[in-house]
């Protein structure tokens, strides 16, 4: 009886492959071949006249990307800077907003909708006209002038307090980009909200009867319970921030499709991917350390 049951589930497990068949096709026929092809293009001379036949020519394009291209390195550095600043700021911001939006107050539904709407209305083709609207609206001009002063004041204040320069930059950049951050956090707030609602109210009640302060409730209950959501949001935020290096992708596209510099463009994309990979592994290491600290 037992044996039969096991084999039934074994047989059942095999159906899993059928369900994920589209994914298998995607990974083995599209994703991996194209990733490899990108690498091959980057180390070859490409004959665009003859059906893109390639011939190995070494890693010279990688050197060229750094040494002889004036645009690439500054763009890469600014992308990396955006990752380092935006990923933690967006996650902390969306956790904060999710905690607030999870509380009971009048107009909660409307507030949730407003914070979520940018996910569908401030993306792709629509986001480029947002800045126009911000710039030309009179209020925008007024804010621009005032806030320019405010930022110099603030950064002056922070430096007079002997704030480390890195931290100061993070704070001023975050304030500077508050619109971008608010607009890229909609989905993360959604995922955090769903996670927060999974935590049973009784846990909080028990803990506060035991004398836990609200601060302790957050650190001892909320944070450990939503670690999985933090991981997902970290991954999603990284993908969002990595995607939005518009200048860089525009540049490589122009190189490839208008100037026929396929090898150089692909080499730049590979360098970008490598940098991203290193960044992601560092983030994963940090998260592992934090979560082991929390569980201790």
């Amino acid at each position: 009886m037992l044996k039969k049951k096991a084999s039934l589930f074994e047989r059942r497990a095999r159906f899993g492959y059928i369900f994920i068949l589209p994914l298998i096709i995607g990974v083995f026929l599209v994703f991996i071949p194209n990733l490899i092809q990108t690498f091959i293009y980057s180390v070859s001379t490409i004959d665009t006249q003859h059906n893109f036949s390639t011939e190995f020519s070494g890693f010279s394009k990688y050197v060229a990307a750094f040494k002889s291209d004036p645009e690439f390195l500054p763009m890469l550095v600014s992308s990396i800077k955006t990752w380092i600043i935006n990923v933690p700021v967006i996650i902390i911001y969306s956790l904060l907003m999710a905690t607030i939006l999870n509380q009971d107050f009048k107009g909660r539904v409307i507030a949730r909708i407003i914070f979520f709407v940018p996910v569908i209305l401030a993306v792709g083709a629509l986001s480029s006209t947002d800045s126009t609207a911000m710039y030309y609206s009179g209020a925008g001009q007024a804010i621009d002038v005032d806030s320019a002063n405010a930022f110099t004041d603030m950064s002056a204040l922070l430096s007079s307090l002997n704030f480390p320069k890195v931290l100061k930059d993070i704070v001023t950049d975050a304030v500077d980009n508050i619109y971008d951050i608010a607009c890229s956090s909609g989905l993360q707030i959604f995922i955090f909200l769903a996670g927060l609602q999974e935590i049973p109210v009784s846990v909080y009640e028990a803990a506060s009867i035991e004398g836990c302060s609200k601060w302790e409730l957050f650190w001892k209950i909320t944070l450990p319970m939503i670690t999985p959501q933090i991981a997902v949001n970290a991954v999603y935020t990284i993908s969002l921030v990595a995607d939005s290096a518009d200048g860089m992708f525009w540049y490589t596209n122009v190189l490839a499709f208008s100037e026929n510099q396929y090898a150089l463009a692909n080499a730049m994309n590979i360098i970008y991917l490598l940098a991203l990979g290193i960044f992601v592994s560092i983030i994963l290491l940090i998260m592992k350390k934090i979560s082991s600290n929390i569980s201790n």
Partner: peptide, 11 residues
């Protein structure tokens, strides 16, 4: 999800 679709778009 993490690999930006623009990076392998040329290939």
């Amino acid at each position: 999800m993490i690999v930006p679709y623009q990076t392998i778009n040329i290939a």
